[in-house]
Design a protein around this nucleic acid. Structure first.
Lengths: 117, 117
DNA sequence: CATGTATATACACTATCGATCATATAACGG
DNA sequence: CCGTTATATGATCGATAGTGTATATACATG
């Protein structure tokens, strides 16, 4: 379990993002999600399995019901990824941005063969 | 132009993210990107076209060369999306988190047909 | 126990997407 | 002009991923 697949890959599917959005409002059971997801129940189940395996949600079984809710980890991860580009638009990060720029000026023209068949 | 496709869809492809990463270090011409991308030049061109059309990059032609560099908009957009989940892990946003929680308690069971063929 | 409800899973189908190859276009240098 | 370099694009192909249908499983309840 805990299949470490691409955050973006997971979030790329609109249906899945819809589910995440619903869960953003709080814990929900599958039925409730199905109502909003716009796809068949089986589809929702599949998406939930993926979200579960990839660490986006947790599941809490209660009788025959299963309650799903969001977990923070992957979102924080996404935030970390985004951080390295934040200097692009966030003026407060200019010091960091300067560092980046310097690095880009200093880079060397590494030839390096590229004839990979 | 300015095809408004899913941010996540665009970023879902690892090769494309690789390109973005390279451009994160500064403006680059296609050749340089190809060296690092691990795919054929034609592939890189296609990816760059997509990134261009979807607003992730700009292009500056110089003779026969084309220099690509990152644009902030879409990243900021992603940041905005992420913001609504930030309360999940950012303790400083607990006030906001409380608001969310209240909302989730108050929600009503809106039936709403879902039989969209 | 029999039936209904909540959720998951196997299967088959389709559409999308990314990769390469070959070729086009356009600018460069002699 | 002519060959070369830089980049883009059309065609084709194979893989992947999402969808619905049908069915399985597990719990609930009379």
């Amino acid at each position: 379990m805990a299949v470490q697949i691409d955050i973006f890959q997971i979030l790329a599917d609109p249906t899945r993002r819809g589910i995440v959005e619903v869960l953003g409002k709080g814990e929900r059971q599958v039925n409730e999600i199905v109502e909003q997801a716009g796809v068949h129940q089986s589809g929702v189940s599949r998406h939930l399995r993926i979200l579960l395996q990839t660490g986006f949600v947790t599941m809490r079984p209660v009788g025959q019901r299963r309650f799903y809710s969001l977990r923070p980890e992957r979102f924080r991860e996404l935030d970390d990824w985004l951080a390295q580009y934040r200097s692009l638009w966030d003026a407060r990060l200019d010091r960091f941005g300067a560092a980046l720029e310097k690095r880009q000026k200093t880079r060397k023209t590494k030839p390096e063969e590229h004839g990979r068949k």
